[in-house]
Design a protein around this nucleic acid. Structure first.
Lengths: 142, 142
DNA sequence: GTACGTGCAAACAGTTTGCATCATG
DNA sequence: CATGATGCAAACTGTTTGCACGTAC
């Protein structure tokens, strides 16, 4: 349904006058092909396997750039490294396996909208975003 | 309702044969008196103001100890430092102000139990814990 | 006195910055 | 060829570890 292909992303960037470099292209590709949200160290390793040896600084800068462009989303699962995934727009949450660290997506059935309205009413606190992760054991690790 | 005072905590530790040191006592006191979940750097600063100059290593070790004892709870708001608060047992979530960084507690009206059951059914994923934080602007910063 | 707690220095991981160089458009 | 992208070294932050010393019980 949400068709953000790597070609779309690259073309979009090109149209906005951004240069398309090997690293930028490879990074978007990897983010699209990998099911897991990736940390910077992971990205660097993956790119090395792809016959590229980008500097970690470049990856940090590139991901910040993609974040500013709204192409990528920043996640934190409490293990003190940021993770990134393509921003598919459809809001979902994550199931993080305590054992094997695998991460699955999960759509919440009941939305949190009514909670956020309650927060505004009760606490006069205007919610901009939320983060919700479930930690537990995946089907393989149970 | 949930009466975990600093005296209770200290006595509990004493009864289990743990030594009560100046630092340990002061740390529990600070955690009780501070409304905010605290990071290690914050704790160190606060203790310095209290005429103590504990080494940061000690604080890290002490908090790990209190965590193992179930006295303290570890939180992560995505700013790459762990935060700690006394574990009051009653499950609540946090409202984190994007602007002034203040943290309020919030009780969810509808519980996430049914979601967790759904996750077990749909994904065969056994949820052990979850984390839910709301980010936005508090009443003072709106 | 013994086991547990502490301090210090050093190491470590993730991340950021400054600056010189490179290469896309 | 100009601007934006890159690489490298160094700094910085939060955190951990090893080891010698100190202290509550």
């Amino acid at each position: 349904m949400c068709m953000t292909t790597q070609a779309d992303v690259i073309n979009g960037l090109k149209n906005q006058g951004h240069k398309i470099t090997k690293t930028r292209k490879a990074l978007v590709e990897i983010l699209e092909n990998t099911k897991q949200p990736l940390s910077v160290p992971e990205v660097v390793t993956l790119l090395k396997n792809n016959h590229l040896s980008p500097n970690k600084t470049t990856i940090y800068r590139e991901l910040t750039f993609l974040l500013d462009q709204g192409i990528v989303q920043e996640l934190d699962f409490g293990d003190s490294k940021k993770r990134y995934e393509l921003d598919t727009q459809d809001h979902h949450h994550h199931l993080v396996c305590i054992n094997c660290k695998k991460i699955e997506d999960f759509d919440l059935s009941s939305d949190l909208d009514k909670e956020e309205k309650k927060i505004l009413k009760d606490k006069n606190f205007k919610v901009i975003s939320h983060s919700l992760e479930f930690f537990g054991y995946c089907k393989d690790c149970r």
